[in-house]
Design a protein around this nucleic acid. Structure first.
Length: 193
DNA sequence: CAAGAGATCATCT
DNA sequence: GATGATCTCTTGA
């Protein structure tokens, strides 16, 4: 069951927690790729100094200020892409970063794109995941209620969740301490234990 | 293992 | 002109 726009229109931290155990699905010319989401981070509102949106409405962050259920993809360090899904109402900038998935479908394709056979190295990090799933700036603004890139609920049990501070946001002052990174407990495919 | 360097470019000042 | 919601490789215990 594909998640609906209503799902993304909830408090961002709730969405980040609920996404654990759901399935990220990517369809393109190469075929279908999917993976179980095992790690997420919440970026919440204008005040959150860790969020790109804290610097205000710019061409790049415009998507975060838009309606929920759309992909926010950006390039980081000139090399890697990061995938987010926009949450909450329009004009309130918020999104959930997908940090890691456990590969499920399309593993040979992921192995080719990542140049490794090691399942734990395919999508255990936001940049790796985008490489494995062939996600780049052309998917920025893609509708998560469409067919290219979306999330499915496959009726899994609710996983046991661990909360930690977010990664790589040392510049964010007191916001760097917010425990808004969520992982499935003891999962082997997270970016860092 | 842990720590450090370097890669490279869209975006914002 | 500076910087980053990262990753890989190398170095050295």
């Amino acid at each position: 069951m594909k998640l609906t726009r209503r799902f993304y229109d909830q408090p961002t931290v709730d969405v980040a927690r609920q996404l654990l155990g759901k399935y990220l699905v990517r369809k393109d010319a190469g075929g279908i790729i999917s993976g179980k989401i095992v790690e997420t981070e919440a970026y919440v509102g204008l005040q959150d100094r860790a969020s790109h949106a804290s610097r205000g409405r710019t061409p790049r962050t415009e998507i975060m200020f838009g309606p929920p259920g759309f992909a926010y993809v950006y390039l980081i360090y000139g090399f890697y892409h990061c995938l987010n899904f926009v949450t909450e109402r329009a004009d309130y900038p918020a999104a959930v970063l997908i940090r890691a998935v456990e590969p499920v479908e399309g593993i040979p394709l992921m192995q080719a794109r990542r140049r490794t056979a090691d399942a734990r190295q395919l999508a255990s990090g936001p940049g790796k995941l985008c490489q494995a799933f062939a996600i780049d700036l052309s998917l920025n603004g893609a509708d998560a209620c469409g067919d290219l890139l979306y999330i499915e609920d496959r009726g899994q049990d609710a996983p046991s969740i661990v909360a930690r501070p977010r990664v790589g946001v040392d510049y964010a002052g007191r916001w760097k301490r917010k425990p808004w990174r969520f992982l499935i407990r003891d999962n082997l495919f997270v970016s860092k234990p």
